[in-house]
Each structure stands twice: as C-alpha cells, then as structure tokens.
Design a protein around this nucleic acid. Sequence first.
RNA 1: GCCGUGGUGGCGGAAUUGGUAUACGCGUACGCCUCAGAAGCGUAUCCUGCAAGGGUUGAGGGUUCGAGUCCCUCCCACGGCACCA
Length: 966
Amino acid sequence: MAKNSFDHQEIEKKAQAKWEALNIYESDLTDTTKDPFYLLFEFPYPSGDLHVGHWYAFALTDIYARFLRMKGKNVLFPIGFDAFGLPAENAAIKNGVNPRDWTYANMERMRAQIRTMGTSVDWNKEVVTCSPEYYKWTQWLFAKLYEHKLAERRNASVKWCPHDLTVLANEQVIDGHCERCGSVVEEKFLTQWFLKITEYAERLLTDLEPLPWREDIKDAQRAWIGKSEGAKLRFQVVNADTAMAPISSAEGSTAIEVFTTRPDTIFGATYVVLAPEHALIDTLMPVFTNADAVNAYRETTARKTERERSENKEKTGVRLEGVMAVNPATLKEIPIYVADYVLGSYGTGAVMAVPAHDERDFAFAQKFDLPIVHVIDPVTGEKQENPTDKAKIVALVENAKGEVLTIHWKPELGGRLLVGGTAEEGEEASVTAAREITEETGYADLELVEQADEQVHHEYFAFSKNKAWIAHSTLLHFKLKSEKQNEQALEEDEKGKFTVEWVTPEVAAREIHDELHEYVLQRFTNYQPYTGNGLLRNSGSFDGRSNQEVMNEIVAAVGGEITTNYRIRDWLVSRQRYWGCPIPVVYDPEGNAHLVPTEHLPWLLPEDVDFTPGAGGAGNSPLATSKELKERVERLFGEGWTPEYDTLDTFVDSSWYFLRYLDSKDDHDFSDPAMMKQWLPVNRYAGGAEHTTMHLLYARFFQKALFDLALVPTAEPFFERYNRGLVMGPDGQKMSKSKGNVINPDEVVEKYGADTVRMYLAFLGPYNEPGNYPWKPEGVFAMRKFLDRIVALSQRLSDEEPNDATLRALAKATEKVALDTERFKLNTAISTLMVLTNELEALASVPKSAYLQLVTILAPYAPHVAEYLFESTQLTSTHTEIDSAGTSIHQQLWPEVDEAMLTSETITMGVQIAGKRRGEVTLSPEASEEEALAAALGVPEVQKYLEGRLPARVIYVPGRILNLIL
RNA sequence: GCCGUGGUGGCGGAAUUGGUAUACGCGUACGCCUCAGAAGCGUAUCCUGCAAGGGUUGAGGGUUCGAGUCCCUCCCACGGCACCA
C-alpha cells in the first residue's frame, strides 16, 4: 500500500457511525422548504448475496442522491425488498426451510452488506413486499381493480412452464422459453386471473411520447404494445353445394370476421383462413365433408408449442370442404382453410388472404395452388407535377442459360436497363415488344412466356424533352428460342448509343437502378408479392385510384368497420406457486368468485403447506394443501365456500412499491394522498434494461388504473428513466458461478475500500447507456491510487490564498463535475476530479480552501474518504461556515461557482489556413477579429503557409477558431 | 425480415452538439529509486517518416471556410420485435 495511504476500514466504520448518529439520511417528506426530488432505484430481490450488479445499481445512484442534497434538494432515496418470488420457494423445497425464514435471513444479511457501500438510503421508509403489512395493500389494490372490472377471471389459452409448474405472463416468455428457468413453455387452456392492461394500450402509447426517456426504451414498449390500424370485415359462410345458400345457426347467418390492415386489397382476397383454435370451426364441424382431416390437423397443431409453430415457416393447413366464403367485394365464392400461420390470439383469429400482396398468403397460395389476383399496380419513380400519360412496354428477355438481356447505355446516357419501348396504339403489347427487341438488339426468335396482369405506373422527368411523364407500363417476359439475329432489322440511328449484354439476373439486379426496370426484373426472375402502395385494378369502381385514398370507402362499401388492434395481451397474474401474495378471493358453493372483504385483509398466506411441486394437485398452487386455509374460508364465509389457491405474479407487488415508500407504515391507507401529490411522479428512476417490457410497462399500467380510480395524482409514475449497462466478469463474459468469473464485492471492499469500488464502477463508462463493462482489477487498483493521491495532498496544505489559475481550475472543475453528475455521466465527472487533482499536485503547496473545495466535490463519489479528510485536516474555509465537530461534509452545500471564473483570461486557439490547422495563438477569448488576425500573422508557421499572401477571407469564431482562406 | 442504438488508439472511453480529434484512466516501453523485487516517482505512447511533412474517427460520396458530429449509399456489432394479417 502507498506511503500516504489511509486505513479504509477504519474511516468507513467511523464515517458510517457518524452518519447514523447524525441521522442525516432520513428525509422529512413534509418539509416544503426545499425542492423535493424523488430518486428511485429498482428494489432488490433478497437473493442472499450482494453482487457487483447491486453495487452498480445502488452505489452509483447514491452518488446522485448525495449530490442533490448538496444542491439543497429534499431527496427521497428509499430502499426495500421485492421479497416474494420463486427462489425462496425453490430453496425451501431443496433445503427444507421455510420460504419466509429464508427470505428474512437473506434480507438481514443484505441490509448489512448494503450499509458497507456507504449509501445514503433512507431505511426508515423500507418496504418488504412479503410482509402482511405490505401485501394487505397489494390485495386491497387488487380488490379495487376487480371492483372496477380491471381484474377478471376467465378461460384462456395461457403459457405454462412445465419446470416451475406455473402459468406465465406473455412478457415472461422469451423466445418461447420461460424467462426464469429457460424451459420451453407449453400452451394450456385454463381459468386464470387477468389484469386488463389491453384497455390501457392506447394511453400507454400516447403518454409515452412526452417522456424524456431514451428512444430505444420507448420503442421497445411501442413494439410490445404493437398498435396496428385496419378494419374488421365480414365474409359470409355458404354451403358449397347449393349455390350461395347461407349457413345459419340459431343466431342467424354465419360469417367469418377478419382483421386486416389492408382492406384496400379486398378484391384480391381469394381465400379465407381460420386459426386452428377458431371457435367457428367447432360450430361448422357438422357441415364439413372432411371433418376427420380438419380434426387431425387441429390436433397436430395443438401438440406443437408456439415456438415450433413459428420455427417452421413452411405453410401447412387443411381446406374446410363443404363450405365456402363470399368475398363481400367481388361477391365470389372463395375457399376457407384452417392453417396455423394464422394466430388464434391476435385480431379475430381469421384473415382474408391476398396472395398477390402479402408474403405469407403468397407462400400458402403457392403451396395449395390458389389463385393470385393483382389489385395494386405499383407506382414507381419520382412524383411529378401534372405528368403526361404515356403507354410503355418493358420486356425481360431470357436466354437458354437463364441470363437476361440488358441494354447498357453509354455512360453519359445512364446505366443498365432491360429492353423497353413505347406501346403502339391498337397493337398487342407482345407484338410491339417483340419488334422493339429485334430493332434494338437483333434477336428475332422470341417466345412470350408471360404478360404480367398488373401494370407499373412510372413517373419521371425527361430532361431531353424537358417534360414530366407517367408511363403506364405493360410488363412482358420473353424466352429466346435461338441466338439467331436479324442484322437488317437493327435501327440505323440507334446504333452506337448502347451495347447489348447478357448477364445473370444477380448481376442485373446489382446494376439496374431504375425502379421500373428493377421491378420487372424481380417480377419475372424472383417474384415476390408487392406489399407497397399504388393504384387499384381488378377492383370494380375503385380501379385507377390510389389504394391509400380508397381505404375507408372500401371498408364502408363492404359493410366493414375501421378498427385498431393491439399486439399486447391482458396481463395474466395467477401463479400456481406458494411464495406470493394470496389473491384475496373466495368462491361460493356455486363457484362464483367473491372478494375477501376489506376487514379480513391482509388475507394471510397459510403456513401449513406442502411446498413439493405439484402437491396442490394439477394446475393448483401448494396453497391447496393447507387445511387452515380451507377451514378459515368455511369459518368466515360458510360451508361449501372454497379459497382461491393461486397467488399473484410478483410483478404486481412491484407495480406500486414506490407509492408505498411515501407512507410505508400507514395501516389505514396504501399511501398518503398529500405526499403523493407532493412527490409524484418519481423524478428519476434507475434500473435495468430487462424490465422495459415487464416491470416498467406494468407499473405504468397500474398507475393509470389507479389514476382513473382517483387513487393517485398522476397518470405516469416515472418522469425520467435511466437504464444502466452491465458489469461483466474480468474475461468480458457475463458473471456466473459456472464460469468462475464472479467478483465478490465484499472482498474488494475489504481490500480497497467502499469508495474505491464506488468510483471504479462510476468510472467504467457512461451510466445511462447500455454498455457491457468488464471488471478490471488493474482499474480498481488505479482508483485506489487516485484516492491515495488525494489523501496525500493533505500533507502539503498551506494557509495561502489560492492564485488566480487555481481559482479558475476549481471553478471549472466544480461546474463540470456538477453538470456531469446531473447527467449521470459519472465517468467524465471523475476524470474532471482527476484533472483537478493533477493540477493541485503540481503546486508547491496546496491552499487549504482549494483542498476543501476538491474534497467537497469529491464527497458524493467517495463519501467516506471525504468525511475523513474533512474531519482529520480540520479544514476551515472562508466561504462556508463549518463546524467539523458537529457536522458532516455531506451536510455541506455544493460550492458556488463564480461565472466570471469559468472563462479564462487567455486561451490557446487553433489557427487554420484553408481549413487545416497550421498553428495556434494565445489571446483573450474576447479578442477582436483584428487582434486575432494580427496575432496569427505573427506566428511563424502561419507566415510560412501564407507565403506572403493575405487571406482572401477570414472566419473568426471568438474563443474557438480562426480560419484564414486564401 | 422490420425497428432502435452504436462503430473513435492495444483496451475502457473523452470531444462544450459544426470549431485545436484521441481528455481521463488502463496497458506498454524506457529511466529514477532499490542489494533485489514490489510499490512509488518521471518521461514517452494514434499511424507513417531520420526529419520537414503527410495521413487518421467502419467504407464510399455530399453539404460547409471547417464534419467524429449534418445529408445520401453501403458494411459491421449490439438490443428489441418477429407467420401480429
């Protein structure tokens, strides 16, 4: 250890004892003399051991908390434990301990560990979600949601984790796997509790806009909510044999309702597809002439997981024989299929298939040989003002080798194209095209393969004629029967303007840049359905109009309705596990659900439970093994009444914990209305990226629901959201026991001290960016060295007044550290502290007041060392009254910065000649252009490059740059 | 595939938002100190060149007196969504 080192264990103990004695971190929420600032970090799960990630989360937000207090804010910086959850239960199963004992022991241990960080969290406001005092209110809030029909029990297809033996919310399924244990999830049809987050989809989306969150976080939420606008259209189901005889049931005629974002393409709908789960299949089963095949298909798909279904993009399906659907636009009968590429859980579980303009429908149509009707003509090129109409032909000519014929214009006339020409009035397009091909290339032995059903409308400006055109282009595909050429047919005047070349379609695709020709090439060599916009065709009275324009008219014409659909599903909150908040519901003998009345809350989690997985019976939580719970229900509600055995998803607990911090001990209300009014929304919320579409979305939903019930004062819970990066092992890999690269922070703290670890982590990189930072032991050591150097400076203090340069350095550093801390750019704040330290080190002796200021702005970062230096050197200062015996450095205010000190008297400024830096001048930042120029002309390097000339133009930005143009 | 974010030395990363690119730190090299090592201290460290000089922010083009920063095309990495009609 260094000569001028310090005993970190000693000073940490003393400093922490002092802070506790002074009780400086208990915030008085009712104090309105200061600005309130609610700084929140995601409360930990009591897993039992504090890891580097916890340090990264808590210790660094603590830097900001301390800074804010010095800035005169009333800071709420609370902590608690997200204490319900699976690990406790798994530990219980494994070691035979009670989940409660395990959890409480872990919390006790973690509290002690967190204290070693030197965080300034306010323990008096601690919440513990598994305590009855807390979950009483989780239950109460659940009851409020239920009363307002936002919680609902229903039958639904749900995700089941076969390892954890519980259902999961959609958000907890990652790539078809359980977010917790990684097992492949199964689909089950079960009766479960849901919270209706879908009703808030639109507001979750719109309220996101003004929030100052990082774009990627907002975007992930938007994608998860998945808004799409379209229409619901109805396709009448008819009997296939008797002409258009509608099939009807008791409710009237039967129709398939589809959701589509492209109602404009309805004239191209050539078949309809139902998801295998679609209820109509059951209804119509008696009518099918191939019911066995339909049933078989449904069973096969039911056995597949959602993952398996989407892994294999090869389309499968079965036609529903005996029935047809009527396209409401064309009034034609079209077949109905059942296929698993249509999802039962999205939209209406049924789609109209338009193979010409949808990739999936196209793939299916290819496989089942279904008709493809083009209803959208692409519009290509640059939009022109009042273009003149023109009929055109573009032809793809292919030879026996599969190469395509291209015209390579001389460079000055443009790049490579297919053969094109002007269509002749009253002549078959294929005839005109064949003649053009022969005239331009000499090839005469042609065979027409295909004429495209659609046309392309290409807008362009012909500079040669100074005119805008819209070319209505007919697309043709020819094959060359032989290489025979007819030289006489070549047009004289066209000769020499271009060369003709056969190239592979790949080369052509790379070199053809004209949109029209590009389309034709792709159309005949690698056909893909056209999903863009354009003009309608084959669409009755809508022909020729823009598809976007007619959207609403078509919907009205076919009797459909405009709707918006969301991808997000309701939040499934039932869990078949023990260690969670009991759902406060009981069932009467008829099986109807009733809320447990408020006077019985908290509705306690029973103790006499067998935790063995599955002990509660199929699909039941272990609560079903409790005799006490059954007896309790019968005693309170009567014979034949039964309990709800499931517990709540722990994300429910964490959706409102930040409200509870404001009044954590209140036994009469979930929080305090006055405090909520004063402290919400949370000013800044720091957390991990993994919660973007889970906790963050749930908490926002909860807040909105409670806002609508007038229980909270704001519709958004969190104003700023900061997502931190990840600290990796020294090998750059994610820390894990199996890789043996786990850093135990306790050991590092013991060796180098808490402040070293805090500052090391802060110095890694910007905190609010998603980086992966490897833990580097040399870096930790270096940070300790830096703190040693600061301590060493205390041996060289003098009572002199700091000189001007020192004062300016202090002002600059103080300002920059404040700015960077505010933005959570803790890494550059520390580099600023280093620069200042380097400057003070270079002085013969360090003025005490300067040293005090360094120690003061260091305090949020290295709270123990700063406290130690503050006391041990008995510092006094002219600009703050300090009684070091009774106060802490953490009660000081942030040093005031004199604006005038921020701009130095002289600066060194670069001099550029024609944009290149050639020298520098030192002058006042307010120097006039004449002064600057005079100074620059005196610089030898500048003279050298000017070669005696005078600059033709001078660009001078005071304090920044002087640029001389010759 | 779509959307988002980013790409700067051997490494983590700076750059006041269009104005001296590579701050700060790590690593490395050499030197001092030492019987010796560790620690500590000092010097150097983007590339090329003996030097003068020239070049450099993923690649290419553009706007500008001036571009890491703005615009276009492309490549790569990370993250989110993904048969969502």
